[in-house]
Write a protein that binds this DNA or RNA. Sequence first.
RNA 1: GGAGGGAUGACAGAGCGGACGAAUGUACCGGUCUUGAAAACCGGCGUGGGCUUGCCCACCGUGGGUUCAAAUCCCACUCCCUCCGCCA
Length: 434
Amino acid sequence: MIDLAQLRREPEFVKASLARRGVSSATMDEILELDIEHRRLLQEAEGLRAEVKELSRRVGEARRNKDAGADDLAARSRELGDRERVATQATDAVGAILREQLLLVPNLPAPEAPDGVDENDNVEVRRWWVGMEEGVPFPAYAEHQRVAHWDIGTELGILDMEAGVKLAGSMFPLYRGAGARLLRSLGFLALNSHMADYEEIRPPSFALTETMMSTGHLPKSADDMYAIERDGLWAIPTAEVPLTSMHRGEILEESRLPIRLTAQTACFRREAGAAGKDTRGLLRVHEFDKVELFAYCSPGQAEAAHADILARAEGLLQSLGLTYRLLDLCAGDLGTSSARTMDLEVFSPGVDRWLEVSSVSWFRDFQARRANVRYRTAQGTTAFVHTVNGSALAWARIWAALVETHRQADGSIQLPQVLAPYMGNQTRIVAKAS
RNA sequence: GGAGGGAUGACAGAGCGGACGAAUGUACCGGUCUUGAAAACCGGCGUGGGCUUGCCCACCGUGGGUUCAAAUCCCACUCCCUCCGCCA
């Protein structure tokens, strides 16, 4: 949630910032008017309540002293109380509308985020490929690497999309044999590499509506998530959701910051409206595993925390021998809650596409304000923390790029050595004899 | 799933209709004393909101209700504890 006090204080700056991502200034004017009306009603209601309290005090006093006139005072108080109820109702009604409007306003883009309206305006910062530092040119992938992972998966018996369809419908993958083990190994590799600096968390896969509100996934993106209506729960689309709410409503000691957490979870996404396009194989699926890195920090720590997550995601991509590029998302393409986001896209030679596998975002205090996570400063005051997170990494697409990139001329796959300890030293995946 | 008990400030714990935003203790911060520390003593010590910056308002698990007045009474819900049942 944006800071209403800031909107009041410098409306032109807030409007100009939001205009960069397509929010009209009329929307903000509407909110400002609601705010003025809300405060006017609030003053009226609180004034009446103060009078009622004062009269009640005097009723008690009169009763104790056996004074006559207590009943008169009570009657007056009752009459004021009726007016107060009406005023409070009006205040709450306007307050609810104001909150509703405010929850729909996205975060202010950071000044450093490039201008632009959609993904076509994102800025490519750099590319990386094996040997780049030594002057090796961008890889010219061989024919045997130009096979889509869904074909490789069928050929080697390690990915069975049809079985997934039978069980849960389209876009629910089923990995098998070495493919399933590879997926498990990726999570193991990543979590092990983070655990020295990030506390490993295994959160619930479902979350309450309130938890979804805190990250900004609700109310805006309800259609993109799976709901378990009977129990009032939502399937989490990312570990960011539970991790952001772990300290919801708390005031943290500044000395504890940054609090760095990592979690691998299944991520559930309905991908409403995406049916048909770019959905073959693992390009876009309803359920995938992802390791998330997360930090609650003071504002001064946020930049370093963001850089650390990005470096870890890149480090993993490099150790897996994958080609990738780094994008600086333009203002118009930022997620609702983010002020600045860097995306990592892996190159998938078999399908000849760049696939997003990590999104490293800095939310400033937008999520912290929604989730009410604060810290106590050295001066004893409280302030909202900054939240930062990023994937390292999202495995379905990594799995795809990995089998395509490392496919050999004989059709087998030679996995990178970094996975050997987790694959029982079986880094070569070949078709089963039967 | 059944029966009972509970939820109050960082923690422990009182209050069970009227000056209660809340006793007391611990912890924490500042001061006195001390070569220093401890002890002792003194003072401070929740969070948010509104405006006329001194005041006002809200918050005692959550939401409703009763009352002139609710931490306190009533109703519903959530969570925790104990016992029973079931279960990986």
